[in-house]
């Protein structure tokens, strides 16, 4: 029995004639923090989105906690409740308050009582450091606060895995840190995380492994210190030299 919480096997994803992901294999253990880096268009977000079935693979298989996502018999909503996702554009529900954003899925999917959902939501808001924003609407929040609410929304489901799709790319520079701090805390608490990001500082500090992708393929997988200091492949070196220059 494979103990990996996420298994990606021979994953291919084509959009029409564009081959976004080619033959990706990845195993992620419980408690690991895996950071996926690479140039834009390298397929990193697509791999991430296949892990909660927002994208359906053209070929290959994804298993989450032993459950085969592409199997017709799988109830994908059950799996998704266990896999939190944080988006680049936050995607908060603009017609709902912060608290409602965090409670709605708990009520509908986890079938929790109203008081239980609210208590949990307040706890998650405390965790991401903005308990005072419970009754605010998303438009009244800064980008960094919105993203922290989005993290709280995902955490409120008590997921086993958290996926982050470029969580700081849409943020003003001064707000990046507050979001990364929350993510670092999560990593320290032992959450299994898969993070697509350009924040190399986060990768160095939190990643157990870094995956470098280019042109839809996984080029190199290594511990952050190894990958950043002694990349094996030319393409990795080139990529790192470009982003670490300044």
């Amino acid at each position: 029995m494979n103990t990996a919480i996420i298994q990606v096997e021979k994953l291919h994803k084509y959009f029409g004639t564009i081959r976004a992901v080619i033959d990706v294999n990845l195993e992620i253990q419980r408690g690991e923090v895996v950071v996926i880096v690479g140039p834009s268009g390298s397929g990193k977000s697509t791999v991430l989105r296949c892990i909660n079935h927002l994208e359906v693979p053209t070929q290959g298989a994804v298993f989450v906690d032993g459950v085969h996502l592409e199997d017709r018999a799988t109830d994908i909503n059950e799996v998704r409740a266990e896999v939190g996702m944080v988006f680049q554009q936050f995607n908060l529900f603009p017609h709902l308050t912060t608290l409602e954003n965090i409670t709605i899925a708990q009520r509908l999917v986890r079938k929790r009582s109203k008081s239980e959902a609210i208590a949990n939501a307040r706890q998650q808001l405390e965790r991401v450091g903005i308990p005072e924003k419970a009754d605010a609407y998303p438009r009244q929040l800064s980008g960094g606060q919105q993203q922290r609410v989005a993290i709280a929304r995902a955490l409120a489901m008590n997921p086993k895995i958290m996926l982050f799709d470029e969580p700081t790319s849409a943020l003003d520079p001064e707000m990046i840190k507050e979001v990364l701090d929350v993510m670092l805390d999560l990593a320290r608490e032992g959450m299994t995380m898969v993070v697509v990001t350009h924040e190399m500082g986060f990768a160095r500090a939190a990643a157990s492994r870094v995956v470098f992708m280019d042109d839809g393929r996984v080029v190199e997988v290594a511990r952050p210190d190894v990958l950043f200091n002694n990349p094996k492949h030319e393409r990795t070196k080139l990529f790192l030299s470009k982003i670490l220059q300044h």
């Binding site: 909503n77 409740a81 896999v83 939190g84 996702m85 988006f87 554009q89 995607n91 509908l108 999917v109």
Partner: peptide
């Protein structure tokens, strides 16, 4: 309504119907 709204709703485990009813249609 941006596709991100449906994706966010589905990503927390809501069914298509729930996402439509509680997230997409009100907006």
């Amino acid at each position: 309504i941006p596709t991100g709204q449906m994706e966010a709703a589905r990503s927390v485990g809501m069914t298509y119907g729930q996402a439509m009813r509680y997230i997409i249609l009100p907006q």
